[in-house]
Design a binder for these strands. Structure first.
Length: 317
DNA sequence: ACTATTTCCTGGATGC
DNA sequence: TGCATCCAGGAAATAG
């Protein structure tokens, strides 16, 4: 389940492998859930785009694209248009057509910052089970593959997502701008302000992407354990000193996990296609009933806003 | 303006 | 072994 550290790791891996490469053609599956922008818009935006950078914003992976000289952007592609074949190695799906059912408007672009005419972005959210793989065209296409980008180098970038909680979109007229602030960049004072007057449990506030972007269930629990705060504590009831501790804990946990190359429990393939990652030693997450590593009190699990939340009833107040 | 709850998805784990 | 049921959870949608 990719949270900020995993997404950071994946984005770095992708950047290393595909920066400078050019998207020659795009295949998109028939399932509409993974697509936030319309299939025609995604295909038209990506094709002939050179990848100038790959970076992370919150849990999103952003591919910056520059249009290859001499190729006009297709403003409004004819519906039902056939996509180019993805390779001469020709799999069955390479001749698939776009489904006309893909018609949703792109709601992910909120910034007023304009992109120049030759620039665009591909934005990927991995959801729970999404993965991006760079592979050779002859590699067997995995089940639940929803998108394949054929690159000028001959390789392919594939988006695979069994549960389809992941999302693909493009930004063409304005630069993509994720909600919230980066947890690793926020200073103490603005961090404290985030929680001022909020009656919601601190756990929910940490998961709220409009406040901090990138913290998910695992790192929220781990941060709260290190800060000695129970997940149900009302955000507004937490003292400045305690928030200062949380501020440090959140950054610490995320940095450690990034240093380990992202942690993950299951169901996960990195940018290089390898299975799993080294895992940060969870101190409470997934340890219900097991002794607290500090005081031996059994770790407790409660459900907050539908999310499993783990804490030590003795160490956390 | 906030907050809480429901919904979307599949596959792995569990229970009978 | 087979089959049903439950559960994981990010974020959008819906309800309060």
């Amino acid at each position: 389940m990719p949270e900020l550290p995993e997404v950071e790791t994946i984005a770095r891996g992708l950047a290393k492998r595909v920066t400078g490469d050019v998207v020659e053609s795009v295949w998109l599956g028939q399932k509409k859930e993974p697509l936030k922008s319309s299939a025609t818009e995604i295909a038209a935006t990506l094709e002939q785009g050179q990848i100038t950078a790959v970076r992370r914003m919150g849990k999103h992976i952003v591919f910056d694209l520059a249009r290859v000289a001499g190729v006009e952007r297709v403003p409004s592609p004819a519906k039902g248009r056939k996509l180019k074949k993805t390779s001469k190695g020709s799999r069955a799906i390479s001749t698939s057509e776009l489904s006309p059912a893909h018609a949703a408007a792109d709601k992910s672009v909120r910034s007023t910052q304009a992109l120049t005419q030759n620039k665009a972005q591909w934005i990927v959210h991995l959801g729970m089970t999404g993965s991006l793989r760079v592979c050779e065209p002859q590699t067997e296409v995995a089940k639940h593959t929803h998108a394949i980008l054929k690159l000028a180098s001959g390789r392919e970038v594939r988006f695979v997502d069994p549960r389809r909680f992941g999302r693909l979109s493009v930004a063409t007229s304005a630069e993509f701008d994720a909600t919230g602030v980066e947890p690793l960049e926020i200073d103490l004072e603005p961090f404290i302000t985030l929680f001022r007057g909020r009656k919601t449990p601190i756990k929910s506030a940490l998961l709220n992407q409009k406040l901090l972007r990138g913290v998910g269930n695992i790192y929220a629990d781990e941060s709260l354990f290190r800060a000695g705060l129970r997940p149900r504590r009302r955000a507004s009831s937490i003292t400045r000193d305690q928030l200062a501790k949380l501020h440090v804990s959140v950054k610490e946990v995320l940095k450690e996990a990034i240093a380990l190359g992202g942690s993950s429990i299951s169901d996960y393939v990195g940018a290089e296609g390898e299975e799993g990652f080294f895992q940060l030693q969870h101190r409470v997450y997934g340890r219900e009933g097991e002794p607290c590593i500090v005081c031996k009190t059994p770790v407790r699990r409660v459900v907050i806003a539908g999310r499993s939340s783990h804490y030590c009833p003795s160490c956390q107040k």
